[in-house]
Amino acid sequence: MKVLVPVKRVIDYNVKARVKADQTGVDLANVKMSMNPFDEIAVEEAVRLKEGKEHHAAGTASEIVVVSIGVTQAQETIRTALAMGADRGILIQSDADLEPLAVAKLLAAVVAEEKPDLVLMGKQSIDGDNNAVGQMLAALLDWPQATFAAKIEIAGGAAKVTREVDGGNQTLSAPLPAVVTVDLRLNTPRYASLPNIMKAKKKEIAMKAVADYGVDVAPRLTVRKVTAPATRSAGIKVADAAELVSKLKTVGAL
């Protein structure tokens, strides 16, 4: 089984995003960038499918191809995935911040070329927080989708996916090829070892341009402004529970 894992270079999970003074966006100058944490989980699961870790049979995945769409530095994000155990990478270079629909169309074109059996990807990126590309890719390919995966089992030409839904879990069987988006509980991604980081430097990254795929990536949305949310100011400390209850009753919260 061939697995395609799309990954995105985003602001590091531990960095607090700050809005630019001119309200045009979030300030990314001199900010630490990393692989989107949900994508790391997708890479980890793909590598486990290849290695036969956890409940997966060894060799369930035969090849793992990582694809990123973004600036030249997104090569580093692909290298991280290669160091975790992916086999090769594709970078579709773009300085524009492409919208989810455009990204899904590009990925559909990559799928047409690479013909993976499974696309495994993060449920959302932590910058745009759209939570849309996986579902849109599945729609464009007319493939089944299983979003927010907490457990994945591959058997009999299908992915059995336990997914997080409102109020509990739902289990689906998605015949392959399919798109599966992953949630936090699926696994804990590994740190790449130094020997694997060295090995990853020799792995291939194909450099592509958006124009190579001939898809319409014209924006549909215009960002009018980006602002900081209203800040909440610290309130008061109360001495004990009795005082708390009396305050809460005064303001009508109880």
Partner: peptide, 27 residues
């Protein structure tokens, strides 16, 4: 192009939504 998780309707075609885990709001 879907518009996810809106928190305000500005007009028939313009919306406000949180990005970066609510650390910013985009219109």
């Amino acid at each position: 192009a879907p518009i996810s998780d809106i928190v305000e309707v500005v007009s028939a075609d313009t919306f406000v939504r949180p990005i970066y885990a609510g650390n910013a709001l985009e219109t």
